[in-house]
């Protein structure tokens, strides 16, 4: 079981990377006033046909050949079910995949959001060429991280240099924390 949603995000982002995605959008929206907590990932990877989408939700299906189980998607579905939320997975071959979960914010069984900064940094470490966008919102206050913007600032320094990754991690985490505690981003 994943302890927090950031772990799900990191895990599912690896699916996008395996699907040869060049762009990945991660959305996180926390809205206590509407009792709503939402995460989703949208990529432009190779996608899946209808049959594969159905199979992907089965823990005993995997596209991998090293072992016979694939738990990433079923674990998110499990977490969603445990909170009586809505799980969605849509995919078009050649276009990409969207996967996500909407759960009640105040559900006692809802895992915390977790360290999204670490999650974003680790995704960029796994795939430095990926165009990653994080859209975070707490109620109506928004924070956005765009990896292309970071790369433009970096010039010829690679985004996966350790100190750059650490910067990204705390940069994201500080902004999220500020929004959660009622401050404004930037």
């Amino acid at each position: 079981m994943m302890q927090d949603f950031a772990m799900h995000l990191l895990d599912l982002a690896h699916n996008s990377i395996s699907a040869k995605a060049t762009t990945l959008l991660i959305k996180v929206h926390e809205s206590p006033s509407n009792d709503r907590f939402e995460i989703s990932l949208t990529d432009d990877g190779c996608g899946m046909d209808e049959e594969t989408v159905k199979k992907a939700r089965n823990p005993f299906y995997t596209s991998r050949t090293t072992r016979r189980v694939g738990l990433g998607i079923p674990l998110l579905e499990g977490t969603t079910k445990q909170c009586a939320g809505k799980f969605h997975l849509k995919s078009t071959p050649g276009k990409g995949t969207t996967i996500g979960s909407i759960v009640p914010y105040d559900c006692i069984d809802r895992p915390p959001l977790g360290d999204v900064g670490q999650c974003v940094a680790m995704i960029l470490q796994a795939s430095p060429t990926l165009h990653l966008t994080l859209d975070y919102a707490y109620e109506s206050e928004k924070f956005r991280l765009d990896s292309d913007e970071i790369k433009a600032t970096l010039g010829d320094v690679s985004i996966d240099e350790p100190e750059i990754l650490l910067f990204i991690q705390s940069y994201v985490q500080e902004h999220i924390k500020a929004l959660q505690h009622g401050g404004k981003s930037q």
């Binding site: 913007e149 970071i150 600032t153 970096l154 010039g155 320094v157 750059i164 910067f167 940069y171």
Partner: peptide, 10 residues
């Protein structure tokens, strides 16, 4: 932290 800090780091 801001993106200006990133420039120094770069």
């Amino acid at each position: 932290k801001t993106l200006q800090d990133l420039q120094k780091l770069r």
